[in-house]
Simulated assay, not measured.
Amino acid sequence: MAEFISASIDKIHMGERLRPIDQGYVEAIAASFEERGQISPIMIRSTPAQNKGKTPYTLIAGGYRLSAARLLGWAEIDAIVVAADQVEAQLLEISENLYRNELNPLDRAIFVMKYRELWEEKHGKIDKNRNLKNSKGHDDPSVFASGKDLAKEVQERLGFGPETYKRATRIGLNLQPAMRQAVRGTEAETNQALLLKFAKLTPDMQVKAAAALKESGDPQSVLALTKPPKPEKTERDPETEALAALRKAWGQASQATRNQFLEEIGLSSFQEAA
């Protein structure tokens, strides 16, 4: 059961968030608060023992709104108190952020993968090789027996289409921590196509690419460096190619065809003499 309250800001513990706080966005929300006031309440849960009782509430969702209120020096903020344990609180945080559509492609992938971790915590690890012996060979083997349940739940609960879910999962699963950190603040952070290209690199290549990206800040040029060099083109020699084609044709021809060819080029007498 949820309860709407006006909560003392200094009684709310923010904790670690799944994405870094953008100070520019905080200032934009603060400006909106000054003009129109707070429209949407934040979401918190009761944690009486947090910080030895000094912060009896812990933030679930609304980190930017809480930061904006603190920036303005507000003493209180509108909040909804919900009954939730730590895992369910994180699921609620993910759900609200995705529903509000405030996430860039990188953060969306991170949130989806965090949702996966929490789901596995409740339902068990997803094993891609599980029950393969019992598979009947159709297009829906048990490779994703539990994974498909997760995909369906994410798509239904978070409003994702299957393609969005697949791409977010591909980025979240394959993008290494060093690469995630390196793309922050670059074009790639908001460009799903670039993130997918980085995610295709091997872990070792991602570490090297991350170091290069920190130096240059240009994802496009870093990706260009990861491509293998193109083989040098050798000049075509028509005479050599023609000779090779003739040799191949001669090797594939029957004896009768060979004799006919020799006769056509005037070498039949030579053949008889031989």
Rank of each mutant, 00 (worst) to 15 (best):
W250G: 11
M14K: 13
V82M: 14
G217M: 14
W250P: 06
Y57H: 07
L71M: 11
D237N: 13
Q271T: 14
G24Q: 04
I77Q: 00
G159T: 10
I80L: 02
R258L: 09
T58R: 13
D85P: 07
A244R: 12
A168R: 02
V207E: 11
E76N: 01
Q206I: 08
P203I: 06
M205Y: 00
D22N: 08
M179I: 13
E117Q: 11
A31W: 00
P229G: 14
Q155P: 01
I9R: 05
D139P: 00
M113L: 12
Q181D: 14
G161N: 12
Q192V: 15
A256I: 09
L71N: 10
L71Y: 09
N259V: 11
R157P: 02
E27M: 05
S67W: 01
E153H: 04
P238M: 10
A75K: 10
Q260P: 06
T47L: 09
S216V: 14
E189V: 05
S268H: 14
Y25K: 09
G251M: 12
P162K: 15
I94Q: 02
L201V: 01
E93A: 09
G137V: 03
A2M: 12
K230N: 09
Q38S: 01
D127M: 02
G217V: 13
N101D: 08
L175A: 06
T164R: 10
N101R: 06
A89M: 08
N101P: 00
Y99F: 01
I80A: 00
D149F: 01
Y57F: 14
N131Q: 11
S46T: 12
M179Y: 11
M113E: 09
M205K: 09
G15E: 06
G147E: 07
L194D: 01
N191L: 10
D107T: 02
Q23L: 01
P228W: 05
K54V: 13
N191S: 10
V207D: 06
P238W: 11
N97E: 09
S254Q: 08
L246S: 12
G62R: 01
K214V: 14
R247W: 03
K233D: 05
V207K: 13
K122F: 02
Y115L: 02
K52G: 10
E239N: 07
A249T: 15
V207R: 10
S32A: 00
T164K: 07
S269L: 15
D149L: 01
L59M: 06
R157S: 11
S40V: 07
G159K: 04
N134R: 05
A69I: 01
E163K: 15
S40A: 03
G161H: 08
M1T: 05
K128R: 14
E76W: 00
Y25A: 05
K152L: 06
E35Y: 11
S254F: 03
